[in-house]
């Protein structure tokens, strides 16, 4: 097996006195697609937000491509908190798609996708426009390039958000419940786009989701979170059809029940 692209070492996270992650070790391989499932409050979102540096790590380390994310080594090889420059350098490998899209409301769809390549990566405007348009074409929204986000449906917004994250060419892309803010009839179009990315790209994916069928379809591996720990971790067939841990069984049973119960 090759070097993992992301490695969590004994990662712990507290919010004040509340422990949300309890010494987690975890690895993601290059190109691997991992789905995170578990009840709300189980720590899966915090787990992903630490990788995006949206929450500060309390204890342990995270490595991205062999570089520490939250730390730097000083001359003696001891770890010290990362400088802003270091954090930004390592963070450039990670991208994220949010539950509530967070498009820039003051920019058109095209400007939303072009903004970071030009401003952050310093790419040439013309060239950035070209790749932004390619990316919009990929998510099927090139015809909306000049509209403002307010005029888009939720599904369209999320597809723009995906294009915006993808154009930065991240090595790892986090999806934080990308369809849970959408009306049911708009979920499909977003899942299709994510499926496409999963199928063609070498991008590693970390997908937090409640869509079990979709997780099964896309993921190489599913990790089940509960109480700040990863309780079980394995291929979808094992996790979904042959669960070992009682908590996982319980979770899946309750989940199947709610799925089949009439609306």
């Amino acid at each position: 097996m090759s070097e993992p692209i992301v490695r969590y070492n004994n990662v712990t996270k507290y919010f004040d006195d509340l422990q949300v992650l309890d010494g987690i070790d975890f690895e993601i391989q290059p190109g691997e697609k991992v789905a995170l499932i578990g009840p709300s409050g189980s720590g899966k979102t915090t787990f992903a937000r630490l990788l995006m540096t949206l929450e500060e790590i309390t204890d342990g380390t995270i490595e991205v491509e062999g570089d520490y994310l939250w730390h730097e080594q000083d001359d003696n090889g001891d770890l010290k908190p990362a400088s802003t420059d270091h954090l930004r350098k390592v963070r450039s490998n990670i991208g994220m798609v949010f539950q509530h899209f967070h498009l820039f409301p003051h920019m058109t769809v095209l400007e939303n996708v072009m903004e970071a390549p030009v401003t952050v990566q310093g790419r040439d405007k013309k060239e950035a426009k070209k790749s932004a348009e390619d990316m919009l074409d990929k998510v099927g929204l090139l015809d909306k390039a000049d509209t403002y986000p307010a005029q888009l449906s939720g599904g369209q917004k999320q597809r723009v958000a995906i294009a915006r994250a993808l154009v930065m060419d991240p090595k790892v892309l986090i999806f934080d419940e990308p369809t849970s803010a959408l009306d049911p009839e708009l979920v499909g179009e977003v899942l299709d786009v994510i499926k496409d990315i999963a199928d063609q790209g070498d991008t590693s994916i970390l997908l937090i989701t409640h869509e079990m069928d979709f997780a099964k379809e896309v993921a190489d591996r599913i990790a089940f979170f509960d109480g700040g720990k990863i309780i079980e971790d394995g291929p979808p067939s094992e996790i979904l059809y042959n669960p070992q841990a009682p908590r996982l069984k319980e979770f899946l049973e309750r989940f199947m029940n709610t799925q089949s119960s009439p609306e």
């Binding site: 995006m52 540096t53 949206l54 930004r88 967070h102 820039f104 970071a116 401003t119 952050v120």
Partner: peptide, 24 residues
């Protein structure tokens, strides 16, 4: 969310203000 997305897209502090926050 706008601050978070600025972090996710790796904006530095100055650009976060001038490109994302103040224009809104």
């Amino acid at each position: 969310g706008q601050w978070e997305v600025a972090t996710a897209l790796n904006f530095d502090t100055r650009k976060t203000w001038t490109r994302i926050i103040l224009p809104q």
